[in-house]
Design a protein around this nucleic acid. Sequence first.
DNA 1: TTGTGTGAATCCCTTCACAGCG
DNA 2: CGCTGTGAAGGGATTCACACAA
Lengths: 213, 213
Amino acid sequence: MSRKISESTVRRLSLYLRSLETLEGEGSVTVSSEELARRGATTAAQVRKDLSLFGSFGKRGLGYTVSELAGSLREILGLDRIWRVALVGAGRIGSALFEYEGFLRRGFRIVTIVDADPEKVGTRWGDVVIRPDRELEEALRESEVDIAVLAVPGPAAQEVAERIVAAGVLGLLNFAPVHLRLPDEVVLKDVNLVVELEALSFALARRSEAGEG
Amino acid sequence: MSRKISESTVRRLSLYLRSLETLEGEGSVTVSSEELARRGATTAAQVRKDLSLFGSFGKRGLGYTVSELAGSLREILGLDRIWRVALVGAGRIGSALFEYEGFLRRGFRIVTIVDADPEKVGTRWGDVVIRPDRELEEALRESEVDIAVLAVPGPAAQEVAERIVAAGVLGLLNFAPVHLRLPDEVVLKDVNLVVELEALSFALARRSEAGEG
DNA sequence: TTGTGTGAATCCCTTCACAGCG
DNA sequence: CGCTGTGAAGGGATTCACACAA
């Protein structure tokens, strides 16, 4: 049952869902793999292959029913539930996430915020009170956190991550620009802006080189 | 000369550079592919293969000289120059980037900020004055911008991106959770937090399923 | 002896092509 | 007839394994 699903497939599923949400807004009832491919920057065959890993969702000759496929994708992606999220580090990135309305709408609810800065501790974001770093483990357990968003300075990241894992949280979204070494059972995703910028720099540098030559 | 370099290779090069910077801080003089692999969550063979695409940087039996390899990687990644960056959208994400010191240190200098909010226009971030949306094209050209960071709301993103490209900027880092359709000559990188979170959700949902089964 | 650089082998992902259902 | 679902083919990327240089 539990086939191995590649990272890239999952990313595409997420993009398909985004397209389907747009299509719902536009009032479309059905959609073809062709159309989904166009909107997701991939190919029709890829769309069908990705979906076929999880079942048969379409009607031959017709395409996919937008609302049904969206529902199936939400279920596949585990979005048919509320994920309880902790913000570890209440800096700019944390606040950007906190204010992002799409966050809650997609089932991610911020239930705990922790920060090391005494100035911030005790202040409220919405109805969540910021707690001090030393209460991290307690806060994670009390709030039954599923996912921790790690937005602390690079040098502190490894240590804080280990404490989070030790407190029983198995999902981490890491914004610190360092490679975390954690047990295999932990699900870790990195958002590394420096890597993206450097990839951009590489591509642009090559481009101008080629342009000159 | 201009071989095709895969996206994943470039991402790894960026991570190697990060490891090398750490090693420099720790005072290491040489490093093996083995050690770089450990720090970058990959294999020694992969490290050597990646580097071999660009030349021979190591000494057999010894490894790589940390400072030399770091220098070579910076050159390969196009980091041996200053990239002039525009912030389009001065919201939370923009301010997070602006305050991130690693940004400038790695050669990305924010030279222009544009926002549609009249309240923000005219205020200063550092020594950059925020300019109104209608002056976008002018600002990009005057400041000779290489890279635009697009941090505007999803619905506005496509239109603003097209204006940026029309103004001659060929590098875009997009934070809006939409798929932008732009000419092929544009280098576009997406940072999509929703995709990362959903990938996390997927992995966690599967994990608990498997755990129960 | 150690650890790089690299062809060869392997593995995995994407694309092709078409049978088959609506 | 149109479009999905899928085995087979193809193409890339990763890993293996070892010749060779220091």
